[in-house]
């Protein structure tokens, strides 16, 4: 059984493989026929708008919006959990919807509160 279920997914693997099959030769051909002039080391500097780069490209860098990131971690799971309920809605008794509504209410309250806090904080 497990093998059959896995075999369902095999076309995705084929498709991925075909994607590689198409793109790798494209890169290789491009590498073969394109010019390679390497006598100017400045050409290989990272982009800095025509200036000599200053500072590191990979640094400790934080966007201010991590309130949303924290919420995302929670609510993404919730969203997928709702799928499990949604797909079997017809086979469940109607009374099974009530707990889900309760679950949603709790989640909405949590989300509303966290969004409220995030908004009140302003700049994160």
């Amino acid at each position: 059984m497990a093998g059959e279920t896995a075999a369902q997914f095999s076309p995705i693997i084929y498709m991925l493989g075909f994607g590689l099959l198409v793109s790798i030769p494209a890169l290789v051909i491009s590498r073969l026929i394109s010019p390679r002039r390497r006598y100017n080391p400045v050409k290989f500097l990272p982009m800095e708008c025509g200036q000599v780069p200053s500072g590191e490209g990979r640094t400790h860098f934080m966007m201010q919006y991590y309130a949303y990131i924290l919420m995302f971690v929670v609510f993404d799971v919730m969203a997928i959990f709702l799928y499990v309920w949604g797909v079997s809605l017809f086979s469940l008794p109607r009374s099974a919807t009530l707990p889900i509504i309760g679950f949603l209410a709790i989640m909405f309250a949590a989300m509303g509160y966290s969004l409220y806090l995030a908004g009140r904080k302003g700049i994160w």
């Binding site: 890169l27 491009s30 290989f44």
Partner: peptide
């Protein structure tokens, strides 16, 4: 054009 252009990889990449 895209195929025949040089691929430049920045130093340190």
């Amino acid at each position: 054009k895209l195929v025949s252009k040089e691929i430049i990889i920045p130093a340190g990449a």
